[in-house]
C-alpha cells in the first residue's frame, strides 16, 4: 500500500500515523471477518460461531475505524477514541454525557447544537469530532462558574427567554458569542446575528431583551 506517506499525519501532530486500509477497505474487513469465522469454526461449537464472529468483527472494526481525539471540554482534557464520522454533537451527547448541547435538526438548520470551539460559535452537528482535535470546546455546561450563573443565563431567567427550554442552550451560547463578536449593538443587529437559532416556542423578543440587558449592563461575557 502506497500511502505510508510521512507527510500525512493522522490526528494531532505527534499522534500515530494513519492505518490505511486502502480504497477497498470493505473487502479487507470482509477478509478479516472471514478469517475470524474460519478460526471460530475451528475452535468453537456451532451455536457460538455467530457470537464469536461478531465479537471479533467488533474488535477489528474498532481498531481500524476509531481514531484518538484529544480536546478540552469546558476546561477538562478529554482523550477519546472516536469514529471519524462521529460529529462533535454526538460525541458530546452520547459519549461524554454532556446532553446540554441539543440535536434539533442535525443539518445546521436550527442552531440548537451551538457550542464554542476555540471561542467561536459553531454548529456541533456539522463538525466532525476528529477535526476538533487539540481545540477547546465550551458547551452550556461550561458557561457558569460553579454555582454562579453566567450573566446571560441570569438574563434569560429574568426575561423569560425560553419556554420548553430545548433550544435554550444553543440560544445562550449564540447570545454570548453575539456580544463577544460585537454584533449586539442594536436590536436589529441582535436579531440578525441571532437568526441562526430557531425557537419554536417563540421566545425571540425575550431573548433579544436578555441580550440587550447583558450588553447594556457592561457584564464581562
Amino acid at each position: 500500500m502506497e500511502d505510508k506517506n510521512a507527510n500525512f499525519v493522522s490526528g494531532a501532530p505527534g499522534e500515530e500515523p494513519e492505518i490505511d486500509l486502502g480504497p477497498k477497505d470493505n473487502s479487507r474487513r470482509t477478509f478479516l471477518k472471514q478469517s475470524a469465522l474460519i478460526t471460530a469454526v475451528a475452535l468453537a461449537p456451532a451455536p457460538a460461531v455467530k457470537a464469536a464472529e461478531m465479537h471479533f468483527d467488533e474488535r477489528v472494526a474498532e481498531a481500524f475505524e476509531k481514531m484518538p481525539l484529544k480536546m478540552e471540554v469546558n476546561g477538562v482534557a478529554k482523550s477519546l477514541m472516536v469514529e471519524p464520522r462521529s460529529t462533535l454533537l454526538d460525541i458530546l451527547r452520547e459519549q461524554l454525557d454532556l446532553t446540554g448541547t441539543k440535536k434539533g435538526c442535525d443539518y445546521g438548520q436550527c442552531g440548537a447544537c451551538t457550542v464554542h470551539v476555540d471561542g467561536h460559535r459553531v454548529n456541533a452537528c456539522l463538525t466532525l469530532g476528529i477535526m476538533v482535535n487539540g481545540k477547546k470546546v465550551t458547551t452550556i455546561e461550561g458557561l457558569a462558574k460553579g454555582e454562579v450563573l453566567h450573566p446571560m443565563q441570569e438574563a434569560f431567567l429574568k426575561h423569560d427567554g425560553f419556554q420548553c427550554g430545548y433550544c435554550t442552550p444553543g440560544q445562550i451560547m449564540s447570545a454570548v458569542a453575539c456580544i463577544r463578536e460585537g454584533h449586539a449593538n442594536t436590536e436589529m443587529e441582535i436579531r440578525e446575528y441571532m437568526s441562526g437559532n430557531i425557537c419554536r416556542c417563540g421566545a425571540y423578543p425575550n431573548i433579544v431583551n436578555a441580550i440587550q440587558e447583558v450588553k447594556g449592563g457592561g457584564f464581562v461575557v
Binding site: L98, T99, G100, T101, K102, K103, T139, I140, E141, L143, A144, L149, Q153, F156, L157, K158, D160, F162, G165, Y166, T168, P169, I172
Partner: peptide, 17 residues
C-alpha cells in the same frame, strides 16, 4: 420566574433522549 428555569439555562434538565 420559572421554577425549572435554572435547570434549563444550565442545560442540566434531561429530555426524553
Amino acid at each position: 420566574k420559572r421554577v425549572d428555569g435554572h435547570l434549563k439555562v444550565t442545560g442540566s434538565i434531561r429530555y426524553a433522549a
